[in-house]
Design a protein around this nucleic acid. Structure first.
Length: 198
DNA sequence: ACTCTAACCTATTCAGGAA
DNA sequence: TTCCTGAATAGGTTAGAGT
């Protein structure tokens, strides 16, 4: 809640069903400025259509540009900067605060998207690497199978177990030279998303 | 320890505008 | 008319000051 605004005159609480008439700042007609209040001395009660029309106006391009520049400078809004931006842009301090809050939310969403992109890319790289290694293992197994078969033939003997099993045993016991360190040193290219403000 | 205040956050609503 | 974006709201959490 923004309690930096000047004190407001007492206003009766609205009926629950009229909650749309209120915001949590106890500001009954958000589009009405403090200046208007000071001039008239009382809140003007707009017709329902007027209220709805005034309620959610898009900010102007130049206002957004200034807010963006300020956001790039610092994502958090201190009270002094809020006042300054409010004066400079002709907005309510509350509007500036809301804009920064929504902007931080959008920024966070983008960050999550970036993280997803990066992780997806890393996953794809690892998947490809894994496929390549699987193929290599198959090739080596085939080569070993041939080689062992040839040696058996030269010795004139035979084995109780099948050639495939011998290959499995040899590969398991001594041919698997990939260490844990190797696994940890696989380079993973990063996702190169620019850190765009939006 | 408790209360109050003022900031923050997430989820949601709904008007404005583009397609 | 539909759909998306963003301004605004609702309600919850948190940090800091005062008692």
């Amino acid at each position: 809640m923004d309690w930096h605004q000047s004190a407001k005159p007492f206003l009766p609480l609205p009926e629950p069903s009229l909650s749309f008439f209120y915001n949590y700042n106890n500001h009954p007609y958000p589009a009405q400025t403090q200046t208007e209040l000071m001039e008239t001395g009382e809140w003007l009660v707009p017709a329902m259509d007027d209220y709805r029309n005034k309620n959610k106006k898009r900010l102007k391009r130049d206002q957004i540009e200034v807010l963006e520049m300020s956001f790039v400078e610092k994502m958090k809004l201190d009270p002094e900067r809020k006042k300054q931006l409010s004066r400079e842009l002709g907005l309510e301090p509350r509007q500036v605060a809301v804009w920064f809050q929504n902007r931080r939310t959008r920024w966070k969403t983008k960050q999550i998207e970036h993280s997803y992109c990066s992780l997806k890319h890393q996953y794809d790289v690892i998947l490809k690497e894994n496929q390549k290694l699987q193929e290599e293992v198959m090739k080596l197994k085939a080569m070993l199978s041939l080689e062992l078969g040839f040696e058996m033939h030269l010795l004139g003997g035979y084995t109780e177990i099948g050639g495939e099993e011998i290959v499995e045993q040899v590969v398991d016991q001594s041919f698997c030279s990939v260490t844990e360190e190797d696994c940890n040193t696989v380079s993973l290219p990063h996702c190169h998303w620019s850190v765009a403000p939006y």
